[in-house]
């Protein structure tokens, strides 16, 4: 749709589809006829029928829609953006974060901070990493900008706690080492697109 169509604010000239509602009664007699017709046709009972049918379906045909929430949970979309997770490398178990600070830079709520240092292996070590969830707006930019797929949005949307800091430290977000085998690659926000290979220009290699 082009922008011009949005800018047309004259209601009625846009491209609406009109429903065929028949003619509205004009005279009193017409109205009487309409009432009489509808009463005789027992249109009201159609409504009753619908609700009754739904009740039968719900009660006897297993189509009850309620999820008993804290006890049952719906699976959420992989693209859902809840509390962040910090991923580890499957091979070594070392965290993936390289401390580049891009998430810190892009964060529009300015809620990410990290402490880094030069470690014994001549690498950049992330000594602490926090997200202030009181400020985080879960926009997902951090996950999108992360070059290592290290920070992703997880599915933990229940973030009520006595302290906001309860799940905001590096350790809290990192995949626990004993659950490393269950760590799943993040397919959602910021993940490599399926056609990434096509978009890359090949660089010559001398090996």
């Amino acid at each position: 749709m082009s922008l011009e169509q949005f800018k047309n604010r004259n209601v009625g000239t846009q491209n609406y589809t009109m429903l065929d509602l028949g003619e509205r009664p004009k005279t009193g007699w017409d109205r009487f006829k309409q009432v009489a017709r509808r009463s005789v046709k027992l249109e009201l009972f159609t409504g009753l029928k619908v609700t009754f049918r739904e009740m039968i379906k719900a009660l006897f045909m297993g189509e009850m829609h309620t999820i008993k929430y804290p006890f049952e949970k719906l699976p959420i979309s992989p693209r859902y953006r809840a509390i962040h997770e910090m991923k580890r490398l499957l091979e070594s178990g070392h965290y993936r974060c390289i401390g580049c600070g891009l998430c810190e830079k892009i964060c529009i709520a300015d809620c990410i901070r990290m402490d880094t240092r030069y470690d014994e292996n001549q690498r950049k070590e992330v000594s602490e990493y926090t997200i202030n969830f009181g400020r985080c707006i879960f926009c997902g930019y951090c996950a999108e900008v992360c070059p290592e797929l290290a920070i992703v949005h997880g599915g933990r949307y229940e973030n009520a706690s006595e302290q906001r800091a309860s799940f905001a430290l590096f350790e809290d977000m990192l995949t626990p080492l004993d659950q490393l085998n269950q760590q799943q690659e993040f397919p959602g926000f910021g993940a490599v697109s399926p056609d990434a290979d096509k978009k890359i220009k090949k660089t010559p290699l001398a090996y």
Partner: peptide, 9 residues
């Protein structure tokens, strides 16, 4: 300064 902070910060 090595790996302590990022210049843009």
């Amino acid at each position: 300064f090595v790996y302590k902070a990022n210049p843009w910060e």
